[in-house]
Amino acid sequence: MALTGFKRLVGRHTEIGILLIAALLIAYFSASSDGRWANAYNIGTILQVTATLGLMTLGVALVIGTGEIDISVGSTFGMGALVYLWLALRVDPTLAVLAALAVGALIGAFNGLVITRTGTPSLIVTLGTLMIFRGLAIALTDGFSFSIPYASRGKFTYWLFGGGDIMGINTAIIWLVLALVILMLVLGATRFGNRLLAVGGSAASAHSRGVRVDRVKLAAFIICGMLASFGGALEAGKLGFADGSMGRLMELQAIASCVLGGCLLAGGQVSLVGALTGVFVLSSIQSYLVVMGVRPQWFMLLLGVIVVGAALGDRVLRQWAIRR
């Protein structure tokens, strides 16, 4: 029967819920916005936001997959943006991106080392680094912003790292798709992926089979830091400026996207496609509120209400699916 088949599909693939929610929202937003939401320009904007938040979210999904959490990514994103923009003025954007990646990797390594060496909960450690690097970003910019003059934005490499469009869509989307493909392969078909999911499922069992649990977690934090920082660099490339507040509260959106997308907060279950669909849903809601002229003061509240609603809907669907 078609219904039982669908039930099994929902039971096996945790991302079905968010895909359905995305489809419903797209239909509703398109129908109710008189073309203001569903047009090429607006969709392009949504995809650009999806790309930078999405890169961060992919990294967070890996860390959540190991059973840990990284809430410092918003600040890492900000650091990536500042490092990129400061250097892009002085050297080739490619080098600036590499430097941003290195900074992200260092922040991730710091988080990962403190967590695995001392056994301090990741929530506390990354809460600390969230504040440290936000503070550093604010101190570095000293209330001003870094910006790059229009004249210096002509280079191909500047275009490539978020500084331009391809068929109306920001080039950041290329990097998101690339990262998604690589990480899906890594997670599903490599030793590292198998061990990462094993660590999230049962760290004690993975350890007893000879998996170096600490190294797996450390690697996840480093990748997470790099992706968040890279997202920040692409965002800075798109805007042409960066200030100390870039990436603020994005960590919460990234975690919400992971959970909406079917990643288990306890670890061991990761859906990268689901998490990115979660990002798309969040960016779509935000953009809908903008084009519908909702006063910005209400954004947070409405976004929160819709997130809770979506999470409830997803839960109801999953419970229905596992009931026999």
């Binding site: 999911l197 094993a198 049962s202 069992s205 993975a206 000879g210 998996v211 061991g268 279950q269």
Partner: peptide, 14 residues
């Protein structure tokens, strides 16, 4: 054994 992984993946874990 990691409950979230398949038998084949558990079998060769590590």
């Amino acid at each position: 054994l990691c409950d979230n992984l398949s038998i084949a993946r558990n079998f060769y874990l590590g």
